[in-house]
Amino acid sequence: EQLTQNVLKSYHETCQLRAEDLQRRRWDTFSREEICAYQKKSMEEMWQRCAGRITEAIQHVVEFAKRLHGFMELCQNDQIVLLKAGAMEVVLVHMCRAFNADNRTVFFEGKYASAELFRSLGRAEDLIGSIFDFAQSLCALQCSEPEVAFLSALVLVNASRPWLQEPVKVSRLRRRLELGFQLLLRRTRREGLLDRLPPQGRLRALCSQHVEQLQALRRRHPPALLDAFPPLYRELFA
């Protein structure tokens, strides 16, 4: 019970956007002119913008992790390993809250945006499509806020990440989180959720696709391109 309260409190304290606000604004979409303006941006500028938004979201995930009971008791190597491997995955899970499955738009820079708004990302368009498909499938599960909170914690605290120094300690923490999640699901009669969650490999594949696209971008541009990206983004993905 204590652990559940801690997961929920950590999640609420570090949530970037409130669910009510996202819901209230879900039909506030970009106009045709605004979409065109985004499409006319250079590929470099659009990548930088997206990297900026991803980095902001990741900073909230780091704060979430810090508040999770047990996370800061892991050795520093393992804290870094878990965040490096899991932060982007958590951001993708959170995206289902900011996604309107009825018109396939996502909250981006103040309004809801369809995939076409990201056209200037060039070849990364496939990645956008995959991310939208993932958000759509997660939306179909209609997860509550407490469920998203636990899913975030469980994506992060994963004992099978490579390079962990104390995997046993991580798996002990994970086990406690799993128990808390099961109790919550039982209480809310949502046990079926566990069987309907997308396979873990899907998140991993999206994250590798993101890194591959970033590498392809770097091959086509001078190294100075990355100077304009947020330092935390470069540290995690470049």
């Binding site: 704060e63 810090k66 508040r67 800061m72 520093q76 490096k84 935390l232 540290e235 995690l236």
Partner: peptide, 14 residues
């Protein structure tokens, strides 16, 4: 190697 992550983790509960 992960200077920024280290810093973020060490900065209290900001």
């Amino acid at each position: 190697k992960h200077r920024i992550l280290h810093k973020l983790l060490q900065n209290g509960n900001s």
